[in-house]
C-alpha cells in the first residue's frame, strides 16, 4: 500500500491545512499580539485600507488578525475534539467488538442512545451545564460525535477477534487486555485514522454552530463567534459574516479533501458497473 502521491485532492487538502496551521501558530508574528485591540476606524470594508486589507469590524478591530487568531481557537477545538471523539469511539467500539456478548449488547445500546439524541441539542445541554469554556466545548462535541466511530471500530474488532493470530495469542495465554492493546487496537486504528480528518471538520463546524447560537468561550474569538457577532450588522456590513464563514469553509473543505483521499487509500474499492 503506497500513499497516492499523485492524488491532487490529497495535496490540495494537505497544503491548505498546512498554510492555515502555520498561520495559526505564527499568529503573534503575523498580525501582532492582540486581535481584540481597536486599531482603526470601525466598518472598514476589505480593500479600503491597505494596512487593514480585510477591513475592520464594528469595534474597529482588524478582521485579518481576528481570522488568524480565530484559526487558533477553531483548529484547537477541532483537533482536540476530533482526537477525543476518535479515542472514545475507538475504545468503546473495540471493547464491544472484541468481547461480544453482554458487553457488546450493553455498549451498543448506549451507542444507540447517543446516536438517537440529536447531537447539537445534546451538546448545547452539556455545554450549558458545564459552562462554556474551550475544554467543555471539546468535551461536549466529543461526547456526542463518537457513535459513528464506535460502530466502525466495533466492526473491525469483531473481524480481528475471529482471526487466527488473535486466536493464537489467546492459545499461548496472552491476557485479554494485552491482546486488545497489542493486536486489536492498532489494527482497528487505521480505519478510524482515515475518519479523523472528517471528525476534525465536523468538530469545527459544530463549534461554529454553537458559537453562532451564542455558546462560546467569552474569553477567546473563534470563527463561529465572529459570524455570530457579524450577523447583527448583516444588513450594512455583510463582509464581517462572510469572511469567517469562508475561513471555516476552506478549512473544512481541505479536511474533507484530505479525508476523502486517505479514505480511498485505506479502503480501496474497484469500480464495478460496465
Amino acid at each position: 500500500m503506497n500513499l497516492p502521491w499523485r492524488s491532487i485532492p490529497l495535496w490540495l487538502g494537505a497544503l491548505c491545512l498546512l498554510a492555515i496551521g502555520v498561520a495559526a501558530l505564527a499568529a503573534p508574528v503575523l498580525v501582532g499580539s492582540d486581535p481584540l485591540a481597536m486599531v482603526a476606524r470601525p466598518y472598514l470594508w476589505p480593500g479600503q485600507n491597505a494596512a487593514h486589507w480585510l477591513g475592520t469590524d464594528m469595534l474597529g478591530r482588524d478582521l485579518w488578525s481576528g481570522l488568524v487568531y480565530g484559526a487558533r481557537v477553531s483548529l484547537r477545538i477541532g483537533l482536540e475534539a476530533g482526537v477525543c471523539t476518535a479515542l472514545l469511539g475507538l475504545a468503546i467500539g473495540c471493547l464491544a467488538g472484541y468481547f461480544g456478548g453482554w458487553v457488546d449488547n450493553l455498549l451498543m445500546r448506549v451507542t444507540e442512545l447517543f446516536q438517537i439524541m440529536p447531537s447539537l441539542i445534546f451538546t448545547l445541554v452539556l455545554v450549558i451545564i458545564l459552562g462554556p469554556r474551550v475544554d467543555t466545548l471539546v468535551l461536549g462535541i466529543a461526547a456526542t460525535a463518537w457513535p459513528n466511530v464506535a460502530r466502525l471500530a466495533r466492526g473491525e474488532a469483531q473481524r480481528l477477534a475471529g482471526m487466527e493470530f488473535v486466536q493464537a495469542a489467546r492459545v499461548i495465554g496472552m491476557s485479554e487486555a494485552r491482546i486488545l492493546w497489542v493486536h486489536i487496537l492498532p489494527n482497528a486504528l487505521m480505519p478510524v485514522l482515515a475518519m479523523l480528518a472528517m471528525l476534525v471538520g465536523h468538530a469545527i463546524l459544530t463549534e461554529a454552530a454553537l458559537a453562532f447560537l451564542g455558546l462560546s468561550d467569552p474569553n477567546v474569538v473563534s470563527w463561529g463567534s465572529m459570524i455570530g457577532a457579524g450577523r447583527d450588522v448583516l444588513r450594512t456590513a455583510w463582509y464581517m459574516t462572510a469572511l469567517p464563514g469562508l475561513a471555516i469553509f476552506f478549512t473544512v473543505a481541505a479536511l474533507g479533501l484530505l479525508g476523502g483521499a486517505l479514505n480511498d487509500w485505506l479502503n480501496p474499492r474497484r469500480g464495478g458497473l460496465q
Binding site: 485532492p9 472528517m198 471538520g201 463546524l205 461554529a208 454552530a209 453562532f212 459570524i227 450577523r231 448583516l234 455583510w238 459574516t241 462572510a242 464563514g245 471555516i248 469553509f249 476552506f250 478549512t251 473544512v252 473543505a253 479536511l255 474533507g256 479533501l257 476523502g260
Partner: peptide
C-alpha cells in the same frame, strides 16, 4: 459533495439572505 460538507448551513443561510 466535499464542498457541501464544508459549508456551514447557517452561514450559507446568512449569505443567501444577503
Amino acid at each position: 459533495a466535499t464542498l457541501g460538507f464544508a459549508l456551514p448551513a447557517f452561514w450559507l443561510g446568512l449569505m443567501i439572505v444577503v
